[in-house]
Amino acid sequence: MNRVFAITNQKGGVGKTTTCVNLSASLAATKKSVLLVDLDPQGNATMGSGVSKNDLEISVYDVLVTSVDTSEAIVTTEGGYDVLPANGDLTAAEVQLLEFDNREMRLRKALKRVKDNYDYILIDCPPSLNMLTVNALTACDGVIIPMQCEYYALEGLSALLSTIEQIQGYTNPKLYIEGILRTMYDPRNSLTNDVSAQLSHHFGERLYRTCIPRNVRLAEAPSHGLPVLAYDRQSKGAIAYLALAAEMQRRHVAASPVEAEVG
C-alpha cells in the first residue's frame, strides 16, 4: 500500500528538510520506492538531494501552475529516491494558485498521476501556513511533525494541530497524524526530558520511539548534496534515520492508520 506523508511544522529550524531528505534515503535503502516532493521555495530538499535548483528546466512550480505532467519534472537522485524539485519560482505559485478553482487540490491531482509508482511519497512543506502547505495537507494521508523538545516548540505544535483540524474539516477528512519526531535530541538536557514526557503523555504511540540526535555529520551532509546515509553511513544521524524508517514500516505492518484525534 502506498502512502503519502507531509513533513511539516510551522516553526522553522526544527529539522523538517533534514528529515525529509534522510528519511527518503533511509526508506530507499530498505528497497522501498520513494518520491520526495520539495514544496519549499528555498529548494533545500532539492539541493540536499544533489539536484541543482538553479539548473532546473521543469520544477514542481510547472506541475502546480501550468499543469506540466508530473513525471516530466521528476529527477532520480544518487540517494536511491526520486525528487520532484523546487526553486524560487515556487514563490510565485503561492499567489498564482489563488486564481484557480479547487486550488487546494492541485498537488493531490498531480500526485495521483504517479502515486502508484511509489511505496512512499514524502512532501517537504514550507515553514509557514500558506496555499502550498494547504496543498500538501490536502494531498497527504498523514502528517509527520518534526520538533525540538523546547518550550516554544510546544506553542508551535498547538498552532499546527489547529491547522490540521481545519484541514480535516475542509479538504481532507481522513488526514491523521502519522507521528511526532523528536529532533536535535539531547537527553542530558532537563527541559528536553520534560517536554519529551509531555509529548509522550499527550500523543502516546504517535510519538516515535526513535529520536534524532544532534550530529555534526548530519549537519554537514547537505553542503555535499548528499543524505547523511551516503555521506557517513556509520554516523549517529544515519543510524537514527535508518531506525526511523524501520519503525515507520513496522507500524504500517502492525496496523492500519487511525485518524488523529486533534483538539
Rank of each mutant, 00 (worst) to 15 (best):
M1F: 12
M1K: 15
N2C: 13
R3P: 06
I7G: 08
K11P: 13
K11E: 12
K11N: 06
G12K: 13
G15C: 03
C20P: 00
L23E: 10
L23K: 05
S24D: 03
S24N: 05
A25F: 11
A29D: 13
A29V: 08
A29W: 09
S33T: 13
V34A: 06
L39D: 09
L39C: 08
Q42I: 00
G43S: 08
N44Q: 11
T46D: 04
G50P: 07
G50K: 07
V51A: 03
E57A: 04
S59P: 02
D62C: 04
V63C: 05
L64P: 00
S71R: 15
T76Y: 09
T76N: 15
E78G: 11
G80C: 01
D82K: 09
L84E: 01
G88H: 14
G88I: 13
D89M: 03
Q96K: 14
L98Y: 00
F100M: 11
E104P: 01
L107C: 04
K109N: 13
L111T: 03
D119Q: 07
I123W: 03
P127N: 00
L129P: 03
N130H: 03
M131H: 10
L132N: 01
A136S: 03
A136W: 00
V143C: 12
I144R: 02
G156E: 06
S158C: 12
L160A: 04
S162W: 05
T171D: 00
I180N: 03
R182L: 15
M184D: 04
M184T: 07
D186M: 07
R188M: 01
R188P: 00
L191M: 10
N193T: 09
D194H: 06
V195P: 04
Q198S: 09
F203Q: 05
P213V: 05
P213Q: 07
N215K: 05
R217K: 14
E220Q: 11
A221D: 00
H224P: 08
H224M: 14
G225S: 09
L229E: 11
A230K: 15
Q234E: 12
L242S: 13
A246Q: 13
R251E: 09
H252E: 11
P257D: 10
P257A: 06
E259L: 12
V262A: 15
G263S: 14
